[in-house]
Structures are given as structure tokens and as C-alpha cells.
């Protein structure tokens, strides 16, 4: 029993880390623009196709030692840059011209971008790459090879399984989140981001180029989604052109439950979502996953409508 509980803890944390990383992108953009970037989950999805393509290109399947580690670092770096760049370009091309438009215009455009990215994912999945399994079935889920060594770090006899990929997902996510915290808390850009989120007009009066700060926020959020795409793919071993929709919605929910606009809240919400999901799958049954998960989240929101770490009172003027 204890082994089961601990095992689900590992599963919940690893999944939760992915939700948290994607949730950060939603929450940071919302914090500054009060806008839900519905295409964010699809940036995550499209980057996972890049990750798989690169794994094939670098021939990482069956690689080991230094070539695996080096290749993996290169995949992570490229994917983070790709996610960042894609998110940035979307903002400049689609959202920026709509900055002063009524709020529904960018929202509907974001949903539109989400579909366009899914279409690109479908196209990408139809390319005849060997790593896609020959891949004429554009819409079929693609197997992402298990490139990390698959052995139990706790020993073959242990009732609990802790794989190298679990350690990688949790460890690397923690490092990335700590780095994000440091940037937001201490760097000049991070302070400008917080100032802009708290009062954009006052930020402008202090000489902050708000437009530049918004661009940087999309870069950072996209980079996190790109990173999340790699670790998700390594962990789940399947990618699909529609996976951005569900994962994006889960991550968005995590951001709201944690308190939208609140960075630690997104991490808390993501981990909570991952853990609740893992335990509900174990003890109630995976067929009830969405109902149980969202039932609990709705309950949380009834008692804390601004989310767990969201401010409960309106700010004094």
C-alpha cells in the first residue's frame, strides 16, 4: 500500500511538473495582458514534433553515455528556443496588432492560432520521417522512443520504481523553475515584468518599454513550453497533434486553481493537478479521471474563487 502511494506520488509529481511548466506560460502572459493565450498548449504540441524530429536526426535512439547526454541537451536547448521564438512570433503577428482591440478579438484570434498550429502539427506528422514510423498516417499518434536507460534506480527488487526519466523530469523542471524564480525576482527584466503586471500605465511612466516586456514574457513562456514538450515526450512516449488541446486546458486550469497571474500559484496548481490525477487514477479509476479531477478543482474554486495563491481581496486604490 505504501509503495502504491509513493509510486503515485512519483507519477503525480512528474506529470504535475509538465502541467506546471505549461501553466507558467499561461499565467505570465495573463499577469501582464489579462489575456488567455489559447494557442499556448499548441506551441507545446508543435515543439514536441520538433523534439521527435531531432531525436531522429541526431539518431539518439540507442545512443548512450556522452552522445546521449550531449544530444539530449541539444534537443532541449533547440526546443526551448523554438518554443520561445514561435510564441514570440505569434504575439508580434497576431496579438500585438490587437492590443487595443476589445478583449474578445485577441481571444478568438488565439483560438484561431491554436487550430492553425494543430494543422501544422498534422502536416508535420505526415512527413515521411523514419522516426515517425514511416509516417504516412498524419493523424496517428507518434511513438516517442524511450531514449533514456530504462532501469529501476531503486534496484530491481524494489516494490517502487524510480526511473532515470523520472529523476530527469523532476530535477530538470526544478532547475528551470528556480532559474525562472531568480529572473523574475532579481533581474531588471523580471522586475519590469512584475511592475508591468501590477500597473502598466505606471510602468510606462517609469520609462519601461512595456511592449518589449510583453515580448520578453512571450519568449520566456514559449521557452518553458518548449522545454516542457521535451520532457513530456520523453516521459509519456507518445505525441499527437491534438495533445496541446487537452494538456493546455489542464495546465490552464492549474494556473487558475493556483491563482491566475501568480507564478508560484501556477507551479502549485500544476503539481496539485498532477497528484490529484495520479491518486484518482489509482484509487477511483482512470475512466473517472476528468470528472474527479475537475470536480475537486471546482470545489477548490468555490471556496477560493481567486485560486489558492490569488489575492482574495480587491487591491486598495
Amino acid at each position: 500500500m505504501l509503495d502504491t502511494i509513493l509510486q503515485q506520488l512519483i507519477i503525480g509529481l512528474t506529470n504535475g511538473m509538465v502541467f506546471a511548466l505549461v501553466a507558467l506560460g499561461y499565467t505570465m502572459v495573463y499577469g501582464i495582458l489579462e489575456f488567455i493565450n489559447f494557442a499556448h498548449g499548441d506551441v507545446f504540441m508543435l515543439t514536441s514534433f520538433l523534439a521527435l524530429t531531432l531525436v531522429g536526426l541526431f539518431d539518439l535512439q540507442g545512443a548512450s553515455g556522452a552522445s546521449l547526454a550531449g544530444g539530449l541537451c541539444l534537443v532541449i536547448l533547440t526546443c526551448a528556443l523554438f518554443g520561445a521564438g514561435l510564441n514570440y512570433v505569434i504575439d508580434r503577428l497576431v496579438y500585438k496588432p490587437l492590443r487595443k482591440a476589445p478583449k474578445l478579438a485577441p481571444l478568438v484570434s488565439a483560438i484561431g492560432v491554436s487550430f492553425i498550429l494543430q494543422n501544422l502539427g498534422l502536416f508535420w506528422g505526415g512527413m515521411p520521417l523514419k522516426v515517425f514510423g514511416g509516417g504516412n498516417q498524419a493523424a496517428a499518434p507518434k511513438a516517442f522512443p524511450d531514449i533514456l536507460p530504462a532501469h529501476n534506480l531503486l534496484g530491481a527488487g524494489s516494490g517502487l520504481t524510480l526511473m532515470p526519466k523520472d529523476v530527469l523530469v523532476i530535477g530538470a523542471s526544478l532547475v528551470v523553475m528556480a532559474a525562472l524564480y531568480g529572473v523574475v525576482r532579481f533581474s531588471k527584466l523580471g522586475k519590469a515584468m512584475r511592475a508591468t503586471a501590477q500597473d502598466p500605465a505606471a510602468a510606462r511612466l517609469m520609462g519601461i518599454d512595456v511592449d518589449q516586456v510583453i515580448g520578453a514574457t512571450f519568449l520566456v513562456g514559449g521557452g518553458l513550453a518548449g522545454f516542457a514538450a521535451v520532457i513530456y515526450s520523453l516521459y509519456i512516449n507518445t505525441i499527437h497533434y491534438q495533445m496541446g488541446y487537452q494538456n493546455g486546458l489542464y495546465a490552464f486550469t492549474a494556473a487558475v486553481v493556483g491563482g491566475i497571474g501568480n507564478i508560484p500559484g501556477a507551479v502549485l496548481g500544476g503539481l496539485l493537478l498532477g497528484l490529484v490525477r495520479a491518486y484518482s487514477d489509482q484509487f477511483i479509476g482512470a475512466q473517472w479521471q476528468p470528472a474527479v479531477l475537475f470536480g475537486i478543482l471546482i470545489l477548490i474554486l468555490i471556496f477560493r474563487p481567486s485560486g489558492l495563491l490569488g489575492s482574495t481581496a480587491r487591491e486598495k486604490v
Binding site: R194, Q198, D199, A201, A202, A203, E315, V317
Partner: peptide
């Protein structure tokens, strides 16, 4: 220095 002070409340 704007009307209503507009300090950054959580900084």
C-alpha cells in the same frame, strides 16, 4: 508622478 500614486503594490 501620477494621480492616485500608482505605486507597484506587491513590490
Amino acid at each position: 508622478s501620477p494621480e492616485g500614486r500608482k505605486v507597484f503594490p506587491r513590490m
